[in-house]
Amino acid sequence: AWQGHCIGSTKIRLVEFSAFMEQQRDPDTYNKHLFVHIGQSSPSYNEALLESVDIRQIYDKFPEKKGGLKELFEKGTPNTFFLVKFWADLSIHTQDEAGMFYGVTSQYESAENMTITCSSKVCSFGKQVVEKVETEYARFENGRFLYRIHRSPMCEYLINFIHKLKQLPEKYMMNSVLENFTILQVVTNRDTQELLLCVAYVFEVSTSEHGAQHHIYKLVKD
C-alpha cells in the first residue's frame, strides 16, 4: 500500500526518523524539541505518489568517490533511493546546556528478519566529514520485524554545527550554510551486504510556526 508513497523499498520501510534535543528540567519534566521529523507509521494509498528527482542533480552534494552515491545507485536496485528536503526547526532558544541531550531516533520495519547496518554520513561541500555506523537486530512485533535505533547520541560535529547555525542572525544566512550541508543514510543487510535503502537529506531552515517540515522524493535516473 505504501510503495511509491513514502520512504521504503520492497525489503524495508522507514517508520520514523527524528533528530531532537531534550533537556531535563527536574526528575519528572523533559522539554523536547524536534529539529527534523518524519513519521510514516500509517501511510496509505490516499497519500500522493512521490515526485521524482534525477539523481544526477545531486551527485556532487554527496561523496563521489568509491562507495559514493553514483556507485551505490548503479549497483543498487531501483526504488531504493530517496531524497528528503527538510525545513529544520531551529526556533529554540536555550539559556543553558545543562542536562541537554542531542539525539536521533530512527525506526524501520520489514517482513524479513535481518540484521541491518545503518550508515549516516555527514557531508560538507559533498565531502564526508563524519560517519556513524550502527548495527540493529530485528524485534518481532505485530506481525513484522522492527528495527529501532533509539536515542542515538548526536555526534559532536553536528551539535557544534547546530550551535553555530543558530548564532547566525538571519535565516537566509543559515540557508546559505545549509546549502553545502547534507547527510546520506544507507541501510544494508549486514549478512548479505544488500543495499536496502538509501536516503539523501538536504536542508533549509523552517519559516513555519508549526515546526519542522519536509518533502520526500524518489531518486531516479531519467
Partner: peptide
C-alpha cells in the same frame, strides 16, 4: 556556492523543492 558547485536554485528540481509545506 564554493568549490565550483552549482547552486541548488540552478538545478533541475521540482517546484515543490522550494515550497515549505503548510501543515494541515
Amino acid at each position: 556556492a564554493r568549490h565550483g558547485q552549482v547552486p541548488m536554485r540552478k538545478r533541475q528540481l521540482p517546484a515543490s523543492f522550494w515550497e515549505e509545506p503548510r501543515p494541515g
